[in-house]
Design a binder for these strands. Structure first.
Length: 465
DNA sequence: TGAAATGTTGGGGCG
DNA sequence: ACGCCCCAACATTTC
């Protein structure tokens, strides 16, 4: 048999479920379709497009080592897949399943076109460890509360196996003349300093993390200046690393650990992968979250319209050091420490009273790990509009958070040169020490005042105003 | 994976 | 010595 394998954001050879299955059937023609709906999508942005193209280039190189060519085409996926099916005389298409509404609709169009062409299409589970339909409540419904989902996830008896990379991919020699577009003609300048990406880099990063930092993950992951997070998020986004590989290696390590602190750390790390599965199944089961609040009552929140405040937040000029440090790190690196993502997101929604979708879109444009289901889930969590959400009244105090999580001010000093000589004692409240911080701007809003306004805003939406 | 407002307690200053 | 007040320190409630 001969099949296409259509790579999307599963750009690896190891533990690639659909690719593995395709290889077992016989000959395989690996392909990537460059889709303008992706390349020209303003909510994706140059950082992720550049990283995607880099990951495709790295994949293409490793496929060559396995004896195969990666065929890259540019156009509408339904048209290009069918065209390639005919050109390569393949009987079917294998690919891995996606869950967000655009991808679901696209895949339905492709499936129709493939069937109309008289061929078979075979989707596989690959993006997650467990899909939504594998983790259901006793009543058979999808979970809408994380903790319960996690308990059920952890109780699963059979974790999916980690599949090896195919030793050799049987690429039909007579297809060497198939055309493939030159990736270089699509190359795009990222806005931030994006990292190098490849499957080998991803696997090394995971190993380094599991050899060391994971053992104090429970306590150190919340320290943005130490920054001992795993840094695998962009690999999970583009599929240079599989979540099953991550979980399987973490569980194997856990089995060897006795020290409670180490055990707790590894468990906390695994639970972050569970969050990821959780948000994918939420997006799959409740696709309306892509547009609006998970809880419809919060669709009536009257968010503020204030382009000046929005821009100040985006550029890191709010006058709250921890917020500005985070937003400047995002702009420079295309990445922000998770703790600071929560603080900056809370500030947008509950101090500037701006719609969480503005923040979701801005994060999406810059983040190298921007995964729609995960980004959306986390923003709705912070905004209090989502499933299992932080209650609307749980409002971060940016100064308290700063003192608690960056006590020495090292993170702030790294990203805000105006404050680089300010001692820890004064760095969290620069407006109270104007003589020490002459270069740094004054707060654009007053937290105590905004907090009350936020409570009123949510109260009105709940029909209690 | 909150913070502020409000309530309670108890030590110490003081008349 | 005693009652009163103040106010940390801690606990509970509320948003």
């Amino acid at each position: 048999m001969r099949n296409l394998f259509w790579f999307r954001h599963d750009l690896r050879l190891h533990d690639n479920t659909g690719l593995h299955a395709a290889c077992r059937t016989g000959e395989v023609v690996p392909c990537v379709i460059l889709d303008d709906a992706f390349l020209k999508n303003s909510s994706i942005g140059p950082n992720r497009i550049a990283l995607f193209l880099d990951a495709v280039a790295a994949l293409s190189a490793s496929l060559e080592k396995s004896g195969a060519r990666l065929i890259i085409r540019h156009g509408k996926p339904d048209v290009e897949i069918v065209r390639l099916l005919k050109e390569s005389k393949a009987g079917g298409v294998y690919h891995n399943r996606d869950y967000e509404p655009y991808a679901v609709a696209r895949d339905a169009r492709v499936a129709r076109a493939v069937h109309d062409a008289g061929a078979e299409i075979t989707p596989h589970k690959d993006l997650v460890v467990f899909e939504g339909h594998e983790i259901l409540t006793q009543a058979g419904n999808p979970y809408a509360v994380y903790t319960q989902f996690k308990n059920s996830w952890l109780k699963q008896e059979l974790f999916p196996a980690v599949l090896p990379a195919p030793k050799r991919i049987a690429f039909p020699a007579e297809l060497n003349a198939l055309t493939s577009v030159d990736l270089k003609t699509f190359s795009i300048e990222p806005e931030s300093e994006v990292p190098e990406i490849s499957e080998a880099i991803a696997r090394r990063r995971l190993k380094d993390f599991l050899d060391d930092d994971v053992l104090e993950y429970a306590t150190r992951r919340d320290d943005p200046s130490a920054d001992q997070t795993s840094k695998i998020s962009h690999h999970l986004k583009f599929g240079t690393l599989s979540p099953r590989t991550v979980v399987s290696q973490a569980r194997a390590l856990l089995a060897t650990m006795r020290k409670p602190e180490s055990r707790k750390s590894i468990e906390t790390f695994i639970s972050e992968i569970v969050w990821r599965d959780f948000f994918f199944q939420i997006m799959a089961a409740f696709p309306h979250v892509a547009e609006g609040a998970f809880r419809p009552q919060y669709d009536s929140v009257k968010w503020a319209t204030n382009p000046t405040h929005l821009k100040a937040w985006q550029e890191g000029r709010t006058g709250y050091p921890i917020v500005d440090a985070g937003m400047r790190q995002l702009k420079k690196m295309g990445w922000m420490h998770n703790r600071v993502r929560m603080i900056t997101a809370s500030f947008l929604c509950k101090d500037l009273l701006i719609d969480w979708r503005e923040g979701e879109n801005y994060f999406s444009r810059l983040l190298i790990d921007g995964e729609p289901a995960v980004n959306n889930g986390n923003w709705q969590w912070v905004a209090g509009t989502g499933t299992d959400a932080q209650p609307y009244f749980r409002i971060f105090n940016p100064t308290t958070q700063s003192e608690r999580f960056d006590p020495d001010g090292d993170y702030i000093r790294r990203w805000i040169p105006e404050l680089k000589d300010v001692p820890a004692e004064f760095i969290h409240t620069p407006s109270e020490h104007p003589l020490l911080c002459p270069e740094y701007i004054l707060p654009i809003v007053e937290h105590a005042v905004q907090r009350k306004k936020a409570l009123e805003m949510y109260k009105a939406a709940r029909g209690e105003g």
